[in-house]
């Protein structure tokens, strides 16, 4: 992406984010948030992170590839296990990176 396009993209996302944050304390300060929007907002983060994780791990240039002969899927699996057991973000990242390096060094 060209630099001007990237700048324009960031400004658009920045303005949008600010409008979200200002919406209910500025524009609609005397209104309640509609119930359907409330229900929708609760699921945004899990849906987004799941789609991004699946895409980052298994989509390469528009193709789905389960590349189990490379270290990344296995390092991700180790991260999932540590995330599940510890519920600690830093421990999860550390476990994933450590597994990646170990596998690269030992096997792949």
């Amino acid at each position: 992406m060209s630099t001007p396009a990237l700048l324009a993209l960031l400004v658009v996302v920045g303005i949008l984010t600010f409008l979200y944050r200002y919406a209910m304390i500025g524009f609609f300060a005397r209104h309640e948030l509609p119930g359907w929007l409330h229900a929708l907002c609760r699921h945004i983060a899990p849906a987004s992170f799941a789609a991004l994780t699946a895409s980052a791990l298994f989509v390469h240039g528009g193709d789905v590839q389960f590349a189990f002969d490379t270290p990344r899927p296995w390092a991700a699996l180790a991260a999932v296990i540590v995330a599940w057991r510890t519920r600690n973000v830093l421990a999860t990242i550390a476990a994933g990176m450590a597994t990646l390096y170990l596998l690269k060094f030992l096997i792949f």
Partner: peptide, 11 residues
Amino acid sequence: PLTFIALLTLL
């Protein structure tokens, strides 16, 4: 992506 995995698990 490791960060996304960690956040997803919490959610």
